[in-house]
């Protein structure tokens, strides 16, 4: 069964706001695809269009090559958690899963299996209204897994979770992908996806900013920069700038140098008699790489805004 989630030229307008514009990307089987963008970037809207809840103004979203609403057993093709708080507070957790299982034509034993899988066994008989956020997330994930689908989507699954819950969800996402499923997971914080995603689809204001592997993105963001630790910051910056490097202060006693290899920096500083305590290759975090990407998008938007007020 083809598990690919494919979005092609998606556009959605809500009144004057263009929520999603010309968006294309693919979430492939066996990978965790991180879907990242600031709040209001159009992530949830995109996921809703993939599920056939909202109708796109243009473009298409396909699950295993077919529009979601044409699937005969949708819960067995794509499982999704869009909003963990979307449960009736007066209904017991097990009953919430039961009606979903009935709607999907799934056997009752699947309900017990996903309860076990998500560690909800002791809480399944309680009304969902009394659930903590973490338990609601687990219930939402249990619902997504009901049909044992080859493709899965989670909207902000770690939002508001404690560290233990975050670790659990990361491990779960990884193991679902390792089983060959396509896993699309959205977040407004790149750091939440660090070590969890294979590919990243970054959007801002409804448009695609980057569609890349995590490794490529980190390499590009690190960009051969060197971190230098020195007590004589002013002198070091002058010397290196004269040699043609771009030098930026990175906190007290530290500068980031771009445009010069580490060996050349050491030679220059030693020659000029500037003391330093450390030189290391700069290793960008995912968060930094993301800031770099979205900073470009912000500048682009500012220019575009001036042209068309």
């Amino acid at each position: 069964m083809d598990a690919t989630i494919e979005v092609r030229g998606l556009r959605k307008r809500y009144g004057p706001t263009l929520a999603v514009d010309a968006l294309s990307f693919t979430a492939r089987p066996g990978q965790v695809t991180g879907f990242v963008g600031p709040n209001g970037a159009g992530k949830s809207t995109t996921l809703r269009m993939i599920m056939g809840l909202d109708r796109p103004d243009a473009g298409s979203a396909l699950v295993g090559g077919r529009p979601y609403r044409s699937l005969r057993t949708p819960l067995c093709r794509l499982g999704a958690m869009l909003d963990a708080s979307a449960v009736h507070p007066a209904r017991r957790a097990r009953d919430h899963l039961r009606w979903l299982a009935h709607a999907g034509g799934l056997p009752r034993r699947r309900v017990e299996e996903v309860i076990e899988l998500t560690g909800l066994a002791s809480a399944a008989g309680r009304r969902a209204g009394g659930f903590s956020l973490g338990m609601r997330q687990r219930l939402g994930i249990a619902a997504a897994l009901l049909g044992d689908p080859p493709a899965l989507m989670f909207d902000e699954p770690v939002n508001g979770l404690d560290p233990e819950g975050i670790t659990w969800i990361r491990g779960l996402l990884r193991s679902l992908a390792a089983e060959g499923r396509a896993v699309l997971v959205s977040s407004h914080l790149m750091s939440e996806l660090e070590g969890g995603a294979d590919r990243l689809v970054v959007i801002g204001r409804g448009r695609l900013i980057a569609d890349t592997s995590v490794a490529d993105l980190l390499e590009a963001a690190s960009g051969g920069r060197v971190e230098l630790r020195t007590a004589e910051r002013q002198e070091a910056m002058t010397v290196l700038a004269r040699a043609g490097a771009t030098v930026t202060a990175a906190g007290p006693g530290a500068v980031t140098v771009a445009g010069l290899p580490a060996e050349r920096i050491i030679a220059l500083l030693t020659g000029e008699g500037v003391a330093f305590s450390g030189v290391s290759e700069h290793r960008a975090s995912l968060e930094e790489a993301y800031m770099e990407l979205t900073r470009d998008a912000v500048e682009f938007r500012a220019v575009a805004g001036r042209e068309a007020p």
Partner: peptide, 16 residues
Amino acid sequence: GEYATGTIAATLAAVP
């Protein structure tokens, strides 16, 4: 009640 609690999304996802 489904609109108030948001379960309508799950309902329409299960039965499009």
